[in-house]
Simulated scan of single mutants.
Amino acid sequence: MTFVDKWQQQEFPMSIADFDFLRNLAYSQTGIVLPERKKQMVYSRLSRRVRTLRLSTFSQYCHYLENNTQELPEFINALTTNLTAFFREKHHFVHLDKQICPQWLAGKQKRIRIWSAACSTGEEAYSIAMTLYGRIDLNLFDVKILATDLNTQVLETAKKGIYSAEVLPTIPANFSAKYIKTLPNTEQFSIKQRIKDLVHFKQLNLLQTWPMSGPFDVIFCRNVFIYFDSDTKQRIIKKFRALLNDGGYLIIGHAETINDFAADFEFVGHTIYRARKRKVPFSPLFQQQEAE
């Protein structure tokens, strides 16, 4: 059966032109590359929107996207992947605890800024906050964690900080005893307010203008680069470096590498990179020029 036959016989017919329109729109808006092998995923995720809008074909949905800008966030939310977990890739949090925190405690700098650049439903950002809380004296240090994501729906979940009891075992027992509370008559738990207070959730598209001026001491951007092409990846890595302090850390996912674009970084551990000293001291103006 040909592509045309197969996809025209689905519940909502989708032509080659429809798929090309959708993947080109996804790339232009998010940087996500959708090769032909992702057709079934695209169909499955967007069929819900076609059904909700009471449309009959993907051609109608493409036309709707072209003429209704309010549908774009729904389109992006439907396509983006949000797999995450508390303390996922545990070695990153061990490095934060055992290597990075002692550097801060031994130094003169009292301002600490960390960015979770694809925070999804919040587990990564809260894992960072739990690692820092009690390790860093908040009376002596000014600590803030920025957590951003493209998907507006997952951010709402992240802000609430309420999760299924099924995932509780993924949080170390010493942290869960101090930083979570079970919700009576439910199979859920919530993150305690003192941990929530360290995290600030914002919607952000990595391909668009970044309003923050930095500098950051650590940037987590894990399992994001796998969806980007080489040019997009290089552009974002350059902007990350522009926002990092000298000696700041960029932490990426287990299946990712920045070796091809890492002239400004040194490798210090599995998927952990440290920013080399820049030739010109950091300033917001310098950051804006370098990020462009």
Rank of each mutant, 00 (worst) to 15 (best):
residue 175 F to E: 11
residue 185 N to H: 14
residue 171 I to M: 10
residue 143 V to R: 12
residue 185 N to P: 00
residue 152 T to N: 13
residue 160 K to P: 00
residue 159 K to S: 09
residue 173 A to F: 05
residue 175 F to C: 04
residue 174 N to I: 09
residue 183 L to I: 15
residue 172 P to Y: 06
residue 163 Y to E: 11
residue 177 A to V: 05
residue 189 F to M: 07
residue 168 L to D: 05
residue 181 K to V: 12
residue 146 L to Y: 12
residue 175 F to D: 09
residue 159 K to Y: 01
residue 190 S to P: 00
residue 167 V to Y: 05
residue 177 A to K: 15
residue 149 D to R: 13
residue 144 K to G: 08
residue 141 F to W: 07
residue 173 A to L: 09
residue 161 G to D: 11
residue 171 I to V: 09
residue 135 R to Q: 15
residue 183 L to Y: 01
residue 176 S to H: 01
residue 148 T to L: 02
residue 144 K to L: 06
residue 174 N to C: 02
residue 190 S to N: 03
residue 147 A to H: 05
residue 149 D to H: 09
residue 147 A to P: 07
residue 175 F to Q: 12
residue 173 A to T: 12
residue 160 K to R: 15
residue 171 I to A: 10
residue 151 N to Q: 03
residue 160 K to F: 01
residue 141 F to E: 01
residue 188 Q to W: 00
residue 168 L to A: 14
residue 169 P to D: 09
residue 179 Y to M: 09
residue 161 G to M: 10
residue 140 L to R: 13
residue 139 N to M: 05
residue 186 T to S: 15
residue 149 D to Y: 08
residue 159 K to N: 03
residue 133 Y to P: 00
residue 132 L to H: 07
residue 136 I to D: 01
residue 158 A to R: 03
residue 170 T to V: 00
residue 186 T to W: 12
residue 155 L to C: 10
residue 153 Q to G: 00
residue 143 V to A: 04
residue 172 P to T: 04
residue 169 P to F: 10
residue 163 Y to P: 06
residue 166 E to R: 14
residue 140 L to K: 14
residue 139 N to L: 09
residue 138 L to V: 01
residue 148 T to S: 14
residue 157 T to V: 12
residue 165 A to V: 06
residue 170 T to H: 12
residue 160 K to Q: 15
residue 140 L to M: 07
residue 130 M to P: 12
residue 189 F to R: 01
residue 177 A to W: 03
residue 185 N to Q: 13
residue 174 N to S: 08
residue 141 F to I: 06
residue 157 T to K: 15
residue 183 L to D: 00
residue 136 I to Y: 07
residue 158 A to G: 04
residue 184 P to T: 02
residue 179 Y to R: 03
residue 186 T to G: 07
residue 136 I to P: 02
residue 155 L to T: 11
residue 172 P to I: 04
residue 184 P to A: 06
residue 164 S to F: 03
residue 167 V to W: 08
residue 185 N to C: 02
residue 147 A to N: 06
residue 166 E to D: 14
residue 174 N to Q: 13
residue 170 T to R: 14
residue 176 S to M: 01
residue 134 G to I: 07
